[in-house]
Design a protein around this nucleic acid. Sequence first.
DNA 1: GACATATAATTAGTGAGCTAATCAAATTCA
DNA 2: TGAATTTGATTAGCTCACTAATTATATGTC
Lengths: 148, 148
Amino acid sequence: MPQSHQELAELLGAVPKAWRALLDQRLRPYGFSQATWQVLLKLGRAGEPLLQNELAARVGIEPASLVRLLDVLQADGWITRQQDEQDRRAKRVLLTAKASQVSGELLQVADALKAELLGGLDEAELQTCIKVLAQIRHAAEQAQEPGA
Amino acid sequence: MPQSHQELAELLGAVPKAWRALLDQRLRPYGFSQATWQVLLKLGRAGEPLLQNELAARVGIEPASLVRLLDVLQADGWITRQQDEQDRRAKRVLLTAKASQVSGELLQVADALKAELLGGLDEAELQTCIKVLAQIRHAAEQAQEPGA
DNA sequence: GACATATAATTAGTGAGCTAATCAAATTCA
DNA sequence: TGAATTTGATTAGCTCACTAATTATATGTC
C-alpha cells in the first residue's frame, strides 16, 4: 500500500472540512448556519425554482434532511414552497425577494473564498487533480453496486 | 471564475462523502457506527496508546466530541482509559485485546477499499493531485488567521 | 510560595445529517 | 378500469459533530 494512498485519503478528509469551516466562518455574519447557506447558495446559483428533490441532490443531502432546513428558511421568510403544476406531489422552492439579494452576497463571499483557495494553483495541475478525483468518484460508484 | 474551480469544489464535496459512505457500509457488519470505527482504525494504525487529545486530532474531530465515542466504546469493552503517569489530567486510550484483533480486520477492509478506489490511478497524476490538495490546505490555513 | 494562565478531559445544549416509515399522487400494467 | 409499484415530501428517532462552560491539574511569573 503506497504511502501516497494514505496521504490522499487524509487530504480528502481534511481539505473539504477546512474549506467548509472557513466558508461557514465568513458567512456567519449573515446569520445563517452551516446548512442553510448551502441551500440559499444552490438556489441562487440555479437561478430558478427547484424541486426539493433536485435541490437536495445539488446540496448533497437527502431530501428528508432538506425538509427541516426549508421549514426554518420558510419561517424566516427566505424561501417559499410552491406546488408544482405538472406534479401535485412535488413542490418548487423559490427564493423570496430579500433572499435573492442576500443570496447574491453569499455567492460573492463563496466565490471570493474559492478564488482565494484555488487562485494560486497551476491550471494544468488543477485539471489533473479534477481528473483524478472524478476517477475516484467513478470507482466509488462502481464499488457501491457491483451487481446492479 | 474558471469552470474548473467549480468542478473541483463539487468533487471535493462529493468524493469524501461517497468514500465515507462506502466504508461505513462495509464496516457496518462489524456493528460499529460511522464514528466509532474511525476511532478504532486510528488507534489500530497508531499501534500505541494515544492521549485523547492526540487521538481526536488524528480522527479529525474535537476532543469534546471524542468523549462520548470513547464512553460507548469503553462500555462495550473495546477500549480502556488509563491515566497518564506524567500528567494526571491526561488519559491514554488503549485497545482491549478483542479490539486489537477486530481493529486489524477493520484496517484490512479499509485498506482494501482504498486500494479499490485508488488502485487504478496513475501514480504521477495522483502525486499531482496530492500536491494540489496540499496547496489548498495550506491556502486554507493562511486564510484562517491572516493576522495571527 | 502564591497567583494567573494554560491545558486535558468532561458535561450540557444545539445543529444537522442519516435511515425507516408514512401519506399522497403518479405511473405502470394486467 | 383497477391493482401494484414508484416517487415527492414529510415525520420520527438516532447518531454525531460543534461550541461554551466546568473541573482538575500543570506551568509560568512575580
